[in-house]
Simulated assay, not measured.
Amino acid sequence: MFNYTFRWNQAFQALPQMLDGALVTLQIALLSMVIGVALALVLTLFRRSESRILRGFATTWVEVARNTPALFQIYMAHFGLGSFGIHLSPFTALLAGIAFNNAGYLAENFRGALKAIPETQPRAGRSLGMTSLQAFRLVVLPQMARVAFLPATNQMVWAILMTSLGVTVGMNTDLAGVTQALNARSFRTFEFFALAAVIYYLIAKLVTLAAGLLARRLFRY
């Protein structure tokens, strides 16, 4: 018989703590995206390299990142590296795992964006006296950013949601960790996790909305 008594007041009283955790969640997601974009650009260049070693390294990274669970990647950063004497804090392990995942997915997004750019574009830059690197940076990269921007927004949302996996490695300052701690003290599971789900949803929608506005401003032409 359904006899559960909802006590939303406890959840709303803890809302400031949960919002503090949401800020940590957003911080991890943003840092992981910055690192992920930088690594993805390097992987993109490696995949275009004439070196089989560099191409193989980049391809392996992308394949592992895209075809293994994100939880596995976070576990490897926290527990796996610990087996070799490299001990990362829960925050750092979570950041490293998400950044690794982001880099793999973003590198594939960038590869698709590059395919949308005609080969004549970099050749036109070279004909104006640019080096290969200058042509990539000044001609190809801006067009690639335009094509890949909105797909990268989806990856940002995914990064926000992936932070919830931090509780499995002892992360207790992000939204999921704070919610878990509050639930352990009060056993009001439905109320706390329902409120956390709403906060995650609002963060994701705000990020999507902000990205859409930014895209219209940056890529008007």
Score class of each variant (00 low, 15 high):
Gly125Cys: 09
Gly129Ser: 05
Leu195Ala: 00
Leu175Trp: 10
Tyr201Phe: 15
Met144Trp: 03
Val140Arg: 11
Gly170Cys: 05
Gln143Pro: 00
Leu128Gly: 08
Arg185Trp: 14
Ala197Gln: 08
Thr153Gly: 07
Ala159Arg: 05
Arg188Pro: 00
Leu161Trp: 06
Val140Gly: 03
Pro151Ala: 11
Ala159Val: 03
Gln121Asp: 11
Trp158Ala: 12
Ser186Trp: 08
Asp174Gln: 11
Phe149Ile: 12
Ala197Met: 07
Ile160Thr: 12
Asp174Ile: 08
Gly166Met: 04
Ala197Gly: 10
Val147Glu: 01
Ile203Trp: 02
Arg185Cys: 01
Met144Ile: 14
Gly129Val: 11
Gln180Asp: 01
Leu161Thr: 09
Val167Asn: 06
Leu202Ser: 11
Leu175Arg: 07
Ala181Leu: 13
Leu150Asp: 11
Val169Cys: 00
Gln143Asp: 10
Ala196Pro: 00
Lys205Phe: 06
Ala124Thr: 12
Gln121Asn: 10
Gly125Thr: 09
Pro142Asp: 06
Gln155His: 07
Phe136Leu: 10
Ile160Lys: 10
Thr189Val: 10
Leu182Ile: 07
Thr168Phe: 14
Ala194Val: 04
Gln134Ile: 12
Ala181Gln: 07
Met156His: 05
Leu128Asp: 11
Val198Met: 12
Val169Lys: 01
Thr131Glu: 07
Gly177His: 07
Gln143Val: 08
Leu138Phe: 14
Ala159Trp: 01
